[in-house]
C-alpha cells in the first residue's frame, strides 16, 4: 500500500520533469527557428498549455512538478538579483533615472493596464 503510493509519487515527479524539460527543449528549438523573437521558455509555456488543451498531455502528468515550480519560482530570481553586484557602477551612475522609472513608471503602467481591462470587462 505504502510502496504503491511512493511509486506513484515518484512516477508523477518523473513524468512532470520529463514533460517540462521536453517542452523547454522544443521551445528553445522553435526560438532558434524564429530568430530569437521570443525566448524558448515562453514558447515552451505556450506549447505546454497547448498540449494540455489538446488532451495530448494530461494535467495529472505534469501537476506535481509544475505546481511545485510555480509555487517556488520566486526563489529562482534571487541569483539574478544578486547579479546587480556586478554592475554597481552602472547602478550608481543612473540611480535617479532607475528609481524614478521603476517606481513611478511601473505604477503608471500597472494602473493603465488594470483600469483599461477592468473597464472593458464591466462594459461587456
Amino acid at each position: 500500500m505504502k510502496i504503491a503510493f511512493v511509486c506513484q509519487r515518484v512516477a508523477a515527479w518523473l513524468s512532470s520533469a520529463f514533460i517540462l524539460m521536453a517542452c523547454l527543449w522544443a521551445g528553445e528549438f522553435f526560438s532558434v527557428l524564429l530568430n530569437h523573437l521570443l525566448p524558448g521558455s515562453i514558447l515552451g509555456m505556450l506549447l505546454l498549455a497547448g498540449l494540455l488543451a489538446s488532451g495530448l498531455v494530461r494535467l495529472s502528468w505534469v501537476e506535481a512538478g509544475a505546481g511545485f515550480l510555480v509555487r517556488w519560482m520566486s526563489l529562482l530570481f534571487v541569483p539574478v538579483g544578486v547579479g546587480v553586484l556586478d554592475h554597481l557602477d552602472l547602478l550608481a551612475d543612473n540611480l535617479f533615472a532607475i528609481v524614478i522609472t521603476c517606481i513611478v513608471g511601473t505604477t503608471m503602467i500597472m494602473a493603465l493596464a488594470g483600469w483599461l481591462f477592468q473597464w472593458l470587462e464591466r462594459k461587456s
Binding site: G44, L47, L69
Partner: peptide, 28 residues
C-alpha cells in the same frame, strides 16, 4: 560575485523550466 554565481547559475537555469510550468495555470 562570480564565485557565488557558480551555484546561482544552477538556480537561474531552472528558471526556464519554471516559466514553462506557468503553462499549467494558463491552461486551467
Amino acid at each position: 560575485y562570480h564565485e557565488y554565481q557558480e551555484g546561482g547559475d544552477y538556480l537561474t537555469d531552472l528558471l526556464g523550466i519554471a516559466v514553462v510550468a506557468l503553462g499549467v495555470p494558463l491552461y486551467q
